[in-house]
Design a protein around this nucleic acid. Sequence first.
DNA 1: CGGCAGGTGCGGA
DNA 2: TCCGCACCTGCC
Length: 284
Amino acid sequence: MRWQTMRWQKTPLGLAFENRGTVDRPKIALSIWSKDRLDRRFVAGLVDEITYRYNLQLDLTDFYRRSKNDPQLGPIMDRWRGMRPLNYSSLYEYLMIAIVLQNATVRRSVQMMQALLENYGTRLFYDSQELYCAWEPKVMDRATEQELRDLKVGYRAKSIKRVTAAFAQREIDEFDLRTRSREEQRQALLGLYGIGPASVEYILSDVFHHLDALSYISPWEQKIYSKLFFDVSPDEPVPTDKLLALFDSRFGAFKMLAVHYIWEDLFWRRKNEKVEWLEKLIRL
DNA sequence: CGGCAGGTGCGGA
DNA sequence: TCCGCACCTGCC
């Protein structure tokens, strides 16, 4: 069972997902909790939205064909066939997460996000769960920068305020952006204060499902890729343009997806056995 | 303690 | 276009 909250058309919802199928015959049972009764059209719209966000219609056949014989991906595909990138956040929510991730350790990012949810989000109790649901932009839009700073988000308060204002004033619209080209999406995102190339890359792949959105590699990722693909010391990492060229030739239109599978596999391994070199490169 | 982290905006070359 | 730098906060 997988629980998550979702704010859809202003309504806070408690959701529970349950697997009722197999990799080859996938099937999900969805349960929905809400304060008021939901009509048929609302639920149909919600199901469409979840289908988009989870990219449930994605056909991975070509990807499997291409990666089957890749020396690195082949074995991973045997373990992870059927997996697809998962993002359940709206664009606005993802932007908030991207901002608190910047220049911070995971522990601190979690702490900042929790403080924001407790102050601006909605607490839900359902199915024996206690989870926060994200706030609407217009709710946070009333907060001052100082109020946000008091939640220990530091200089990110300014970015949070300005991105929130852009959504509250409808300068940016997720559903409109979904119909635009990747370049238009990139430009719109870069135009947001506090959103740079690293955040944009994650959003293009996780929110807008561009499976080839990989043109920027941050320093910490560079070290890990250098070890994974060239087995070199993190002290002398492979230049990012060389890494990007390798991803292009090896994985082409699926390069982001390919790298995603490799990350998942790496962190799954890390959960069960210590991956010594990796421990030094990530800070929790 | 000082240094630095899952980045970014800004000013100046 | 491509640098160098400041930036909140908490942890090592």
